[in-house]
Design a protein around this nucleic acid. Structure first.
Length: 896
RNA sequence: GCGAGAGUGGCGGAACUGGCAGACGCGAGGGACUUAAAAUCCCUUGGCCGCAAGGCCGUGGGGGUUCGAUUCCCCCCUCUCGCACCA
């Protein structure tokens, strides 16, 4: 009689043993092939969620698998520990951000351990620790030295109530996400990193990532960098010494310019309008747009603009061209001004139509007609109305006209990028202090390297207004490192994306207190061979990390030019849920129904107060839009009824607290165990897909493990002392041979599936399939049983390591499965003597025949012709030809 | 609008280079065990026709290439994601 599958006891036992035996520690070993597998580190928000579980389960399988394959792996974990939630917690509940963060780290670390993830915890880092952010500052100083870090004043989102800069995503519908105050554009000085210097190489090197990174991510980065080739052209302004510079990708359309447009933010706008009849109108217009939030500015659909009252002079023809300002021109791209060619640009065309500006065609389609009053023609064509350039193809004209402009000194070829320099200043406490000192005498002075780190002061007051650091006198007031006179510290802290832009390097040498990392160690481990995380970081984090790597490479600090060889973007874990409204709808009820009516409809027999649903919702502060789960909880209705309804009628959504559709990993582990949770998340779908968390699926995974547990326990006494060698498997009977072939086919498939695009779902499916064959095996060959069970356990080990280790002992072994060699298929076991192959007549499946595996076409055809069912289709007809693929198919083509 | 990706049973998904569509799991139906339920075990499960043998249809829709198409090509439809006046 076997014991029950007590996952709790098993899992806790091995957690202890693994830790005591330092099973997951990694050190450099030049004799072994290395593999660096990394998962994006979490923000310590409090508890891990299912998305983390999935992300880290994927990485863990790879790490365990490759360790068993003999690779020297690096698999570290840490904490992206700076950021706003900690500071908000401080403002709200007066807990210091450090305390809040470290408590969360403690809790989440326990959770990750509980799931059996094989991290080398000796390499753990927390970015909020001075040991770590010291090196943020060190890298910043290197960048400052090279002119990559610089300070400038520019327009940013500013909350006038909280007195801080807000990131774009912190501006909700034009208002501050915290205090609801309308956000304005404000010009303030900030620190920037000159990522645009690397635009070309960041774009070019994407080619190296093709086939290794998802196409979607590569495309998104390409678009984000947004390279375009064109020309800058200078337009003189009538009655002025000022010159208007524009960027265009269509210099071939220069003879079609009928107006110029400036962004409302363009400094020339107000200057030009001054003293004209249009001055007031222009002032009003500019004011309207410059006080708008970035968000509002983005929502605008209708094009709007005003004439400035001034004219530019066409640099080739000398024509007078009216200068406008309009909302559809972006300040920050190109020169913030354009030459408008309504005939050949849709946006300019729309604007010209609205304001009745003339449209002048200068390119005609190669074939067919086109009415320039109706729509813009933006494709390749032949030049017309263009002085000496008529008849040229537009692509040729681009070159020729640009050349002409360069010769005349009125323009030049220009490459423009959409990518902007990276504003890293945050008027926030919980981040890395920017190591800069302002001195009245010496100006901007970098903190000397030996004075690093500039440590965050601990005694700080959090009011939610402005940057707390500004009020810390002992932090702000310092001495100039150059002249020794009193000076002030920079109080901006760094964007937390800095922290994550190089953490993968620090893992290679996490305790170094002399430098960010030892080059030798980084060169051994880098690049990250497999990086796993959500696609939401497709641009920001992944682009920043590439940028940092390239900078550090130039500085000679790392050998690699790209940090992440292979990128796996895992899908989200979703959960279906039902609104209260929908629940009522399903039973043809409305909010005026009695609670007892609802209970009756659901088939629940309990005593309830005599109230309507509406009354009950109001008393409990619920609305029809809330999750029906909340109503079920309040009414103490059985949840399994709701679960069924959710799975049938629910809407899939990303798990979120506001929707109350989260599934707590802790609860799941308690109910089913870590092995089951891991197995389910890996089996439910391929890693790249989203999937719905369905509890009956979890039960299925659990059921499988229980079956394996019972089977191995039942058979363990019989096979415990059995040994086997390769010679034992000669001259087997059919049944034994079949099982053994199935085993080795499974081994082959599991190896293939894990290696090929991480198809864990199919790998697990094939293990299940093998297990089904094993349980229906009627033979009595103990050696084959032992081989099968032993390999089954090892195949499961990367996915469900706890149960694997326990079963490993139960069948008489010692040690841990992760220390074993991962199974390799025995080629001799894979050989099939007979094969069932399908037979088609005229391409339609008509039957299957069993033939020797190496049978020739003739033999197969003869066997096929003897088959009754196939005969039926051929009788009285003439065989024209046959198509035969050895071991695969026979297709007989007949006529008549 | 532009760009990328995807449409396969009731559901998640499989089918790797064109070669037996639906592996594996969930759900559902039936049965065994049980006083009963749960758990467990066994059988069935794409649709239609048929007692059965078997046949017909079937991978979003239409067309094409091929002995043979979920897979390749063309057109259309739908969905998801990203970017969104980037001159």
């Amino acid at each position: 009689m076997s014991r029950n599958y007590n996952f709790k006891e098993i899992e806790e036992k091995y957690l202890k043993e693994w830790e005591e035996n330092k099973l997951f520690k990694s050190t450099e070993d030049k004799n072994k092939e290395k593999f660096y597998v990394l998962e994006m580190f979490p923000y310590p928000s409090g508890k891990i969620h299912m998305g983390h579980v999935r992300n880290y389960a994927i990485g863990d399988v790879i790490n365990r698998y490759l360790k068993m394959k003999g690779k020297n792996t690096l698999h570290p974990m840490g904490w992206d520990a700076f950021g706003m939630p900690a500071e908000n917690a401080a403002i709200k509940s007066k807990i210091h951000p450090a305390k809040w963060t470290y408590e969360n780290i403690d809790y989440m670390k326990k959770q990750l351990k509980r799931l059996g993830f094989s991290y080398d915890w000796d390499r753990e880092i927390a970015t909020c620790s001075p040991d770590y952010y010291k090196w943020n500052q060190w890298i910043f100083l290197k960048m400052f030295e090279k002119g990559i870090a610089y300070r400038k004043s520019a327009l940013v989102n500013w909350c006038p109530h909280d007195l801080t800069v807000l990131a774009n995503e912190q501006v909700i519908e034009g208002r501050c996400w915290r205090c609801d105050t309308p956000v304005v554009q404000k010009e303030i000085p900030s620190w920037y990193l000159r990522i645009t210097d690397y635009a070309e190489v960041l774009l070019d090197d994407l080619k190296e990532l093709e086939g290794k990174w998802p196409d979607a991510v590569i495309t998104m980065q390409k678009n984000w960098i947004g390279k375009s080739i064109g020309a800058t052209i200078k337009f003189p302004i009538e009655n002025s010494t000022a010159v208007l510079e524009v960027f265009t990708t269509r210099p071939d359309t220069i003879f079609g310019v009928t107006f110029m447009v400036l962004a409302p933010e363009h400094p020339l706008v107000l200057e030009l309008a001054k003293g004209t009849d249009y001055e007031d109108e222009v002032n009003e217009f500019v004011n309207k747009y410059t006080t708008m939030s970035t968000r509002e500015r983005n929502i605008i659909e209708e094009k709007e603009g005003v004439f400035t009252g001034r004219y530019a002079v066409h640099p080739i023809t000398g024509e007078k061209i009216p200068i406008w300002t309009a909302n559809y021109i972006l300040w920050g791209y190109g020169t913030g001004a354009i030459m408008a060619v309504p005939a050949h640009d849709e946006r300019d065309h729309e604007f010209a139509k609205k304001y009745a500006v003339p449209i002048k065609p200068v390119i005609k389609p190669v074939e067919g007609d086109w009415d320039y009053e109706k729509e813009a023609f933006t494709e390749e064509g032949i030049l017309i109305n263009s002085n000496g350039f008529d008849g040229l193809k537009s692509s040729e004209a681009k070159e020729k006209i640009t050349q002409y402009l360069e010769e005349k000194g009125i323009g030049e070829k220009t490459i423009n990028f959409r990518l902007r320099d990276w504003n890293i200043s945050r008027q926030r406490y919980w981040g890395t202090p920017i190591p800069i000192i302002y001195c009245d005498e010496c100006g901007i002075v970098p903190v000397p390297e030996e004075d690093l780190p500039v440590v965050l002061p601990e005694n700080v007051e959090f009011t939610g207004m402005g940057n707390p650091l500004e009020k810390v006198e002992e932090f702000v007031n310092t001495k100039c490192p150059k002249c020794g006179k009193p000076a002030k510290r920079e109080t901006d802290t760094m964007d937390t994306f800095i922290d994550s832009s190089w953490y993968f390097l620090r893992y290679c040498d996490p305790k170094n207190d002399k430098k960010p990392f030892e080059k030798e160690k980084v060169d051994y481990w880098m690049p990250v061979d497999l990086y796993i995380g959500g696609i939401e970081h497709a641009v920001l984090h992944l682009l920043y990390s590439r940028f940092f790597t390239k900078f550090l490479h130039e500085e000679g600090l790392v050998d690699v030019k790209e940090p992440f060889t292979k990128l796996l973007t895992q899908g989200m874990v979703l959960k279906k849920w039902i609104k209260i409204e929908k629940l009522l709808e399903l039973y043809n009820l409305d909010e005026n129904a009695k609670l007892s009516d609802l209970a009756k409809a659901l088939g629940i027999d309990t005593k309830l107060e005599d109230k309507t649903v509406k009354q009950f919702l109001e008393e409990n502060h619920l609305t029809l839009n809330d999750n029906a789960k909340l109503l079920f909880e309040k009414l103490k209705f059985p949840m399994n009824i709701l679960t069924k309804l959710e799975e049938e009628y629910g809407k899939s959504d990303k798990m979120s607290k506001s929707k109350h559709n989260t599934v707590d990993p802790d609860e799941m582990i308690q109910k089913y165990g870590a092995d089951t949770v891991r197995l389910y998340t890996l089996f439910a779908a391929p890693p790249q897909n989203n999937f719905d968390w369905i509890e009956s699926g979890v039960e299925g995974a659990n059921r499988f493990l229980k079956r394996v547990w019972n089977y191995v326990n039942d058979i363990s006494e019989d096979i415990k002392d059995v040994t086997y060698a390769h010679e034992d498997f000669k001259n087997l009977n059919k049944e034994d041979k079949d099982l053994r072939r199935k085993l080795h086919q499974t081994i082959k498939k599991v190896n293939d599936d894990i290696t090929r695009e991480y198809q864990f779902n199919t790998a697990i499916a094939s293990i299940m399939e093998f297990f089904n064959s094993l349980t229906s095996y009627k033979g009595e060959n103990k050696k084959i049983l032992k081989e099968s069970v032993e390999n089954l356990i090892l195949l499961l080990s990367p996915f469900t390591p706890f149960i694997a280790d326990e079963l490993w002992r139960i069948i008489g072994n010692t040690g841990y499965t992760i220390q074993q060699k991962f199974p390799e298929a025995d080629p001799s076991a894979l050989i099939e003597e007979e094969k069932e192959i399908p037979v088609q007549i005229n391409g339609k499946m008509r039957g299957k025949i069993t033939v020797p595996a190496d049978a020739s076409e003739e033999e197969v055809l003869n066997t096929a012709l003897e088959n009754e069912n196939i005969k039926k289709w051929i009788e009285g007809k003439e065989i024209i030809k046959t198509i035969f693929v050895k071991g695969k198919i026979l297709n007989i083509i007949v006529k008549g």
